[in-house]
Amino acid sequence: MKVKLVYFAWVRERLDKPEEELDLPETVVTVADLLAHLKTLGEEYETALQHENVIRVAINQEHAEHDEPIAGAREIGIFPPMTGG
C-alpha cells in the first residue's frame, strides 16, 4: 500500500524530512504496526519514534489510536503531543 507520511515538530526534525511516500508491506495493518515498521527503516526513525506511547497519529487528517487499522489511508500524519493555544 502506497501512503504519504507527513511529520511535524520534533518528529519532523529528528527524521530530517517533512514528508515522504512509502510503499508499506501488507503485514502493516494498524497504526502500531506502522510505527514498528518505520523503526526498522533506520536509526533516525528509531530515535524519532522511541517513545511510541507519546507519538500521535492522524489518518487522512483525523486523530487515530494506535490500534486502529490504516486501511484506506492516503495520508498519515505522525507528530508529538500538541502544544498550541
Binding site: F8, G77, P80, P81, M82, T83, G84, G85
Partner: peptide, 23 residues
C-alpha cells in the same frame, strides 16, 4: 490545546532555538 495540531518551539532571548514546548 490538546487536539488541534499546533506545536510551539521556543526561541531564546539570544535568538537560538531552545527546543519544543512539552505538552
Amino acid at each position: 490545546k490538546t487536539s488541534a495540531p499546533f506545536w510551539k518551539k521556543e526561541h531564546a532571548a539570544s535568538g537560538e532555538a531552545r527546543g519544543w514546548v512539552p505538552a
